[in-house]
């Protein structure tokens, strides 16, 4: 057991947890933030993506104790009063069906747009496709997801 203190969605959280606790488990079981989903348990599907210190990370491939002092943002903490432009775009462009991949997809997409903007790079449709390879969707065929990311990128 290790005591960790970290900031989750802007709130300081302190817990005693076993060292082997994965971040996904910590968020879902200990903090009841169930918007972060686990789809494959092996870091392939991307349903569990959250932001750690502002960067996208797969929470099923991150130990919670290693994040002592970190800032974590989950899908539940993305909206700041109003919906984030990415959340709006996924709604508006029908970028979801069953919705299970949606939180990870949105967190990954926000990270992509932020990164490209920070680096002054143009986010092309091709780049979106490449960047989203680590997020699997079984329902939509990705078409509307890419449209949503393109639309949100223009507003972010």
């Amino acid at each position: 057991m290790t005591n960790i203190t970290l900031t989750v969605n802007g709130k300081s959280v302190s817990r005693d947890i076993p060292d082997e606790t994965l971040l996904s488990e910590f968020l879902r079981e200990h903090l009841r933030l169930t918007g972060t989903h686990v789809g494959c348990d092996t870091s392939q599907c991307g349903a569990c993506v959250v932001h750690v210190d502002g960067k996208a990370a797969k929470s099923c491939t991150t130990l919670a104790v290693a994040l002592d002092g970190a800032q974590v943002t989950t899908i539940e903490g993305l909206a700041n009063g109003d919906l984030h432009p990415m959340q709006e775009a996924f709604t508006e462009h029908h970028g979801l069906q069953c919705g299970f991949c949606t939180p990870g997809m949105i967190m990954a997409s926000v990270d992509i747009v932020n990164r490209y903007k920070a680096e002054g790079r143009t986010l092309t449709e091709k780049a979106i496709r490449h960047e989203l390879e680590g997020n699997i969707c079984r329902c939509t065929g990705y078409h509307n997801i890419v449209k949503a990311v393109e639309s949100a990128a223009a507003k972010m």
Binding site: S43, G46, A56, K58, T61, T62, A108, E133, G134
Partner: peptide, 9 residues
Amino acid sequence: VGSVQIQNS
């Protein structure tokens, strides 16, 4: 290597 998030770690 894997996906972008895996390349990050």
